[in-house]
Design a protein around this nucleic acid. Structure first.
Lengths: 127, 127
DNA sequence: CGGGATCCGCCCGGATACTG
DNA sequence: CAGTATCCGGGCGGATCCCG
């Protein structure tokens, strides 16, 4: 193939007139993209920095996610002509806007962590 | 198996002290859960109503998603002793809070739909 | 350092059929 | 109506190796 590899890169919005949630979930609903985005929200990061910050992500998936984010205009990739190679990623203004609701989701999760696990335990106990 | 079937039901928060995003994405990051949640936000719905409203979801996945949402305390399931059977689903107060950031995400997607597809076309054209 | 290419196992989820 | 059971193909993503 000329570009792209397996998966997440290919998300394209359907032309239909419908609920926008699938689109946004196609962008950041996967396992890693949102975390990458939030980490980049703290400031520009190099590839290896992201690899360590996100923790658990594989080199491959980080690359794929970054490509997808770049393709959708959420992240910029700038190569500095140094030796050793130096590549910096940063969020675009478009991504800045989406970070707010994303942080809100994270905040909600933190607030209700206990309630969630309690609900699960109750559900599992009742069978 | 006694309960549960394939997948989405099993999400359990890791005990570690870390970023809450994976947790919330485990709850509503999949293809359908968020849409189900938003639809239920409009008011209580019966199974078949949801099946038609969400559009594209299979009976199986709707069941799985509802079970997962119920397990995490986001949705209540009430069976009315009628004939024919009547089951109503509704959001809990816990879910009410998460609907706001979710709507914000959807709004963001609607606002930037054009920008996103433009970014993709540009990226693809450049190779 | 910052990737790309390939292999491959597993899980996700659609299709279909059956049930109280 | 509101599910459950089973089958099964595809793709998602980890592991590994290689490269400029």
């Amino acid at each position: 193939m000329s570009r792209r590899n397996t998966a997440v890169t290919d998300q394209v919005a359907p032309p239909e007139e419908e609920c926008p949630l699938p689109e946004v979930l196609g962008l950041i609903g996967d396992k890693w993209s949102a975390q990458v985005l939030l980490e980049l929200g703290h400031g520009p990061r190099r590839f290896t920095q992201l690899e360590r910050a996100v923790e658990g992500i594989s080199r491959r998936m980080l690359t794929l996610n970054l490509r997808a984010l770049e393709r959708n205009g959420l992240v910029t990739r700038t190569v500095h002509p140094d030796a050793p190679p130096r590549v910096e990623y940063a969020v675009t203004p478009l991504a800045e806007e989406i970070r707010e609701p994303l942080e809100a989701l994270a905040a909600w999760a933190r607030r209700n962590r206990a309630a969630l696990s309690a609900a699960r335990r109750a559900y599992d106990r009742r069978g």
